[in-house]
Design a protein around this nucleic acid. Structure first.
Lengths: 351, 351
DNA sequence: CAATGAGAAAAAATCGATTTACCGTGTTGG
DNA sequence: CCAACACGGTAAATCGATTTTTTCTCATTG
């Protein structure tokens, strides 16, 4: 008779072994489908597993293993739809390959990001998916490089020659936005962004400007880049309008900026798109049910996650070769918040 | 000279030990601040730790330990602001106590929820925070009870005599909504909800009805409860209005319902709040920047997380006693989407 | 002076798996 | 006929920590 371990209350592999009258090694083999075990023993082991309700302890098994079956994920925040669904996709993909995803949030802090990547190394995870706070040159990324951890950088990154990267093709998406705005007749657009997200913000900006000038040489593009937080951006946006600037459209390079812009419109009593048009990076569920529906650039979350995991597991499997840079395409949803410009929003009001 | 382990490339406690000229046990003691180590050895150990860059492997240390310093969390989805910030708070709280939070999503599936809770037990986590898909009677909760895992149920749960529970006081919040609507002059309200979230939906519904009848005996409350998914709700809502029902306000008992209602309004070209008022459970960032701003019941995410973790760690520390049920209060933000009713929305249009 | 005890550290057991080394037995080939 | 080899298994080593047990060294005491 097997005796269940007293300490944890759960049967160990040795309990199964003695119950089945074989050694622990044999049990391990059966559990892994090794074919060199006599059918009779296989049956006995399965029977013992069944009656004892045995399930392997992943910690113990990973300890002995060279590579742990854990993938770490670090994202800047859990609160947004974008990173929420990103984690969902990453989790799904990891589990599909028999790994466990441990998701953490850097809370938009580079210090914390560094701590987290270190903790990931403490855990000796098989690989890491890092969505850096700022870009591929942050402290966490450096740590990864110095300790050559296997990992893939996503989202706020550009192609890099020491990391595999996957991020939405924001440049071409921005070009698409520019094309759409030009086509509607806009010739004066304000672009807002967060400066600290240097990597992608520049790509998005350049993509927009290049396409705009190409398609409409007379296009005027104003730019407001706030350094770190949305607070300053809010202020800068307010000042910008208060000085009398009257673009016919606003293009926000990141999700929160869209909210900031909307909030500023509301404060001034401007109607969208009658008084001013709006497009933003990142789609959200609410954008298609409010008045007006908000035009948005939809990032290919599923593709980003899938490709990142593909590359990551390739590296885990030992595949060498140069870093790859993947740029899945975005989709642009031109909704009601974008219209043809009038002569400009009525001027004169100020708060 | 100490030799770094060849396999992982990282120094183990034995490397530190031999480098410092002491035993592994002594290193362990120093790392845990045990005071019975000679100052001289303490110094040597610290020096070795420093030069080797030693950091303990949490898996190895947890394996030996009775209780692992891991807290499992299971939520129905990662995509919403509510659960996103819930995870953020839980993670913060766990780390503050030296534990690691492993967050997972049941993706609104009870089957998966069961799988996840089993996996948590495989990991032998110290405790679990479970936000069940439906209520405290699901398969995951049963599994927890049967294997007496230590854990706390949150959000979609009522007080229970076999579990500690923490959830927003939806009944009193609903009463507050009723009071506000009555005060504005509403006498015909439609309440929409998801039937499968039996636990809290009933509490929210009853809280509303009781307060409504108490404050305005002539109040007419219509109710649409969809079984499982938002799809059927969308249809039911459409049918309801198509039959000519004209409540002056809609109260949605859950976040997605608010979007569904808005979307139906939009489809019919109804203005909010001129034609119909709207309040919903759960606040979101966008609700205060759109037209109109959407009134919402704000759940005390921080309190829920904090209280749940307090109770959980109490249990982990071995505190016995009866299950506790915590009901932190909600806040009601009455915004522009709620106005005084006219004679009712203009009738006659139908899609 | 031998016995006792305290203090500190080393040695060994442990956690629960995987992996390696080795051991019979029977078969095959040179 | 004996070495080589495949087969099926088991014992033991291992992963990297913690915890228990043992050992050793002094200092104290009857």
């Amino acid at each position: 008779m097997a005796v269940r371990a007293a300490r944890t209350g759960r049967p160990s592999i040795h309990d199964v072994a003695s119950h089945a009258g074989v050694s622990a090694a044999t049990v391990s083999k059966v559990m892994h489908g090794v074919t060199t075990v006599k059918p009779d023993n296989v049956r006995k082991v399965y029977a013992a597993v069944e009656t004892l309700g045995y399930r392997a302890d992943p910690l113990a098994s990973d300890l002995r293993r060279a590579k742990r079956r854990i993938i770490g994920a670090i994202v800047p925040e859990f609160e947004s739809e974008f990173f929420g669904s990103m984690i969902t996709e990453l989790e799904r993909s990891a589990e599909q390959r028999g790994y466990t995803l441990v998701a953490t949030s850097s809370r938009e802090s580079q210090d914390r990001e560094l701590e987290l990547i270190q903790r990931m190394q403490d855990w000796r995870v098989a690989g890491v998916i890092l969505a850096p706070v700022r870009d591929e040159h942050g402290p966490a990324a450096r740590f990864m490089r110095e300790n050559d951890m296997t990992g893939v950088l996503i989202d706020r990154v550009l192609a890099d020659d020491s990391f595999d990267t996957v991020s939405a093709d924001s440049a071409s998406a921005s070009a698409g936005v520019a094309a759409a705005l030009v086509e509607k007749g806009h010739r004066h657009v304000l672009v807002i962004g967060l400066g600290e997200q240097a990597a992608t913000v520049r790509a998005r900006l350049d993509g927009f400007k290049a396409a705009a000038i190409e398609l409409a040489p007379d296009m005027v593009t104003d730019i407001i880049l706030s350094e770190s937080d949305v607070g300053p951006l809010r202020g800068a946006l307010h000042d910008y309008f208060s000085k009398g600037s009257r673009p016919t459209a606003v293009y926000s390079l990141f999700a929160k900026g869209t909210l900031v812009a909307l909030s500023e419109f509301r404060r001034r009593g401007w109607r969208c798109p009658e008084d001013i048009s709006l497009v933003g990076f990142d789609d959200a569920e609410w954008m298609q049910v409010t008045w007006p529906t908000i035009a948005a650039v939809v990032q290919p979350v599923h593709s980003i996650a899938e490709q990142a995991m593909d590359v990551l597991f390739g590296r885990i499997a030992g595949y060498g070769g140069k870093p790859v840079a993947s740029l899945p395409k975005c989709q642009i949803l031109m909704r009601e918040s974008v219209g043809a410009p009038r002569h400009g929003p009525r001027a004169g009001e100020d708060s």
